[in-house]
Amino acid sequence: MTSSMQNNEPITQATTVANPSNKKEIIAWNRHRHQDKTASDWVVDAIIALVVVVVLVAIIYPLWFIIIASFSSPTAVSIGEVNFWPKDVSFTGYAKILADTRIWVGYRNTLIYSIIGTAVNLLVTIPSAYALSRREFKPRRIIMFLFTFTMFFSGGLIPSYLLMKQLGLINSMWVFVLPGAFSVYNMIIARSFFETSIPEELRDSARVDGVSYFGFFFKIVLPLSGAILAVIGLYFFVGHWNDYFTGLIYIRDEGKYPLQNVLQMILLTNQTTQGSGNVGMSATQAQNFADQIKFGIIIVSSLPLLVLYPFLQKYFNKGVMIGAVKG
């Protein structure tokens, strides 16, 4: 899972998603397969259940630990007394975070960059995906080739940097918006959706009525594409929210740093104590306190995504499945 895999490259091979949407069928099947279980099946089932539980615990526990550690006494955390439940609840870490202006400046910057960035992303990517989904639009093959080639080959760091410099994007907020305005990967997902989910008959009858491509796209395609817009919008938003590289390479001015770069300063280079109000603390105490602040910052910085997550979760499968259908 190198960076390319995280992006979930589109699969050009068709994996037909014939959803077993028939719920009754599934239930009947489940009942059926529980009826004639052999002894070895029970063993296999038990092992599978055990492994699944272990996997779940391995994923949930670290996240749970961060939550409880963020408002437990830092000393109790450091000597291993906080295991399953918070101990000696204290909110000093959060108080400190609230008072740290750097975090809020970063938060504000990232919110601005992410919202504008996502809006531009959708504006550029979605219409393009629709145009390229039209089979009668012959130039689409060469355009697609032009686009997919960039997924496998790029100019590299320095040529890109020099280009940004010539365009005057260094230390400008537009460097978060413009260079990544278009995403080939997300365009392919949207295009697959348009190809498979918008019935061709709709376009035909609209054409008979003299509806142009513009009219059809805005009046019919967009209203039918809520789910895919949500998924792709989320992909873009998460991408902007978690972006660290752009800030590192192109931003000089700390006041313009997005959240991730502020977090890097605080979390990884141990500049936790802004205003150094730690008079009378031993070095260990200070370190423990710093750790508590870190746990809190991890929670605070991930909050928007954690809040969005449950609402959008049901769309994820859909989005990735569409991406899996022939690109």
Binding site: T125, I143, P159, L162, G180, V184, F214
Partner: peptide, 24 residues
Amino acid sequence: QLWAFTLPSIAFVVLFAYVPMYGV
């Protein structure tokens, strides 16, 4: 109209992917 839909994306790809490739 389809060209109008896809031209902005082509412009972005040419500027931010192919120009750096040329700079290689």
